[in-house]
Computed example of a mutant assay.
Amino acid sequence: MPAFRSARARSRALVPAAVLAGMFAVTGAMHFLRPEIFDPIVPRRLPGSSRSWTYASGAAELLLAALIASRRSRNLGGLLAAGFLVAVFPANLRTVRVVRRQPLPVRLIALARLPLQVPLVALALQVGRREGASR
């Protein structure tokens, strides 16, 4: 890959990173602003309180957002984000069970989140590889 990249190529490379960083910033903040939303989806097998896991997950998402937002740590942030998204997939599965008696739109949103994890992991890997390749 040439060392020189056009301004347009650099700006196109920033879009996936900005999307991913923004998503993690919003969801991470929500873990602190509305933890009661996330507590019920923490898998019961995990030791400790659901609230502790909710806060830890929110802190991890805010850290990922910061890593991805920084050009210097974007590669690491993207790779860690991919791992994080895979690690929290059991909570997304649990969400489907938790909302099974909720109105249909809520259940459909929970179900729709499952296949969306695949492109999110791919996006995180793309962000991790893109920055690593440009160095």
Rank of each mutant, 00 (worst) to 15 (best):
A56P: 02
G48W: 13
R72W: 11
A65L: 08
L85E: 00
S73I: 06
A82L: 08
V86G: 12
V86E: 10
L93S: 02
A60Q: 04
P35Q: 08
L80A: 10
L64M: 14
R44L: 11
T54G: 05
N75Q: 14
T54N: 09
L63R: 10
A66N: 11
D39L: 07
L85N: 00
S52F: 14
V88P: 03
P47R: 15
A59V: 10
P35H: 06
G83V: 04
S49H: 11
S73A: 15
G77Q: 14
R71H: 12
F84T: 01
R94P: 02
G78V: 09
T54V: 06
S57F: 05
R51K: 11
S49V: 07
A82K: 05
R71I: 07
F84Q: 00
P43E: 10
A81D: 01
G83I: 09
A81L: 01
L46K: 12
E36C: 04
N75L: 09
I68S: 01
L80V: 02
V88E: 05
L46W: 15
D39A: 13
E36H: 08
S70M: 15
E36W: 08
P35R: 06
F89Y: 15
L62T: 12
F38L: 01
W53N: 06
T54D: 04
E36M: 01
L85R: 00
F89I: 01
A59G: 15
N92V: 01
S57A: 14
S70W: 13
V86L: 15
L67C: 13
I41M: 13
F84D: 02
L85F: 03
I37K: 01
L79C: 09
S49M: 03
N75K: 10
A59R: 10
V86M: 13
L76D: 04
R44E: 12
